[in-house]
């Protein structure tokens, strides 16, 4: 089974539109949306949810006010400044958005007045789309720990692929280089980096290439909207080459991409110039994906 993960470093480079198009070109395949912070793939894939799974991860501290003796020990031991003290009401409480779930306050409360319930962080879904099954998720507002959720989505999508006998999983990865990105690329067969011809796009791509090199994952690069700054597009491809990251082809700036998005349709289903470019990029990606 091959797993292609599409990432970008910088957000807004067109990663999701390209992912959706790749899926359409290869249907039926398993699709995974690992951009759990800003999941958008469902807007073009129109999934029908088959199964929902609550996402519970870690714990959070909750102070039982009526048992609290206001000694302030919890506040002293917490390294995340997550314990608040209201002078007026003389109440200690935990700021759930600051709580790391380390349990130190729980262990050190002299009167055991701190509970430590499991934390509900969101839900993941197995859905059916016109192009095959899709695994996606939604984090609760300010829900944390998207790295673990990403791992869950990846393992569910691989399970689904082996169950149905599909040999490709196409994954829309998260932006950035932190915890969710690391969780989405480790062990993948191939990574496609979609970038844009801007100084930020260049900078972020280099950081992403540092990451794929760190984890020894094979990567390709595609410059989207390349004609916005042809010189920069060329520079980006050259710098990718110094990392041993090969070109997968460019995609031109095309308002038809936005139009397709507004209509809730994958770009390759529209007659628009960028659709041809995306098809050409796929043929390069496919060659690398099926090699070795």
């Amino acid at each position: 089974m091959k797993e292609l993960v599409i990432i970008s470093g910088k957000g807004g480079t067109g990663k999701t539109s390209i992912t959706a198009s790749f899926v359409v070109l290869n249907a039926p395949v398993v699709t995974a949306d690992c951009d759990v912070d800003a999941a958008n793939l469902h807007l073009v894939m129109k999934p029908e949810i088959l199964r929902k799974e609550e996402f519970i991860s870690g714990n959070e501290a909750v102070i039982r006010t009526h048992d609290c003796v206001r000694c302030g020990r919890c506040r002293a031991v917490c390294r995340y400044d997550a314990i608040r003290y209201d002078q007026e009401s003389r109440v200690y409480s935990v700021n759930p958005y600051g709580c790391e779930g380390c349990g130190v306050c729980v262990d050190h409360c002299p009167v055991s007045a701190i509970d430590f319930p499991a934390r509900h962080c969101g839900a993941s879904f197995l859905s059916e789309t016109p192009y095959g099954p899709m695994v996606h998720a939604k984090l609760d507002a300010a829900g944390e720990n998207s790295g673990k959720l990403v791992s869950l989505i990846r393992s569910r999508s691989k399970e689904e692929a082996s169950k149905r006998g599909y040999d490709i999983v196409i994954t829309d990865g998260p932006p950035g280089i932190g915890c969710p990105v690391i969780a989405s690329v480790t062990g993948a067969s191939l990574v496609l980096i979609v970038t844009e011809p801007t100084v930020s796009g260049m900078h972020d791509m280099i950081r992403v290439m540092d990451l794929t090199r760190h984890f020894k994952i094979k990567a390709l690069v595609s410059v989207n909207k390349w004609d916005l700054n042809p010189d920069m597009a060329k520079k980006i491809e050259e710098s990718a080459e110094t990392y041993g990251v090969e070109k997968a082809g460019r995609i031109r700036y095309d308002k038809g991409v936005t139009t397709a998005m507004v209509e809730g349709r994958p770009v390759v289903l529209s007659e628009t110039p960028a659709a041809d470019d995306i098809r050409a990029v796929w043929s390069v990606v496919e060659k690398h994906l099926k090699a070795d």
């Binding site: 958008n40 829900g143 969710p180």
Partner: peptide, 29 residues
Amino acid sequence: PGTSCPMVTAVNGADYVVLVTEPTPFGLN
């Protein structure tokens, strides 16, 4: 960007937050 730990850490305690978006379905979501 996003809505998880790093964004929450940055926004926590601010007097005001400006949310930037694009007028598209992805932007709206």
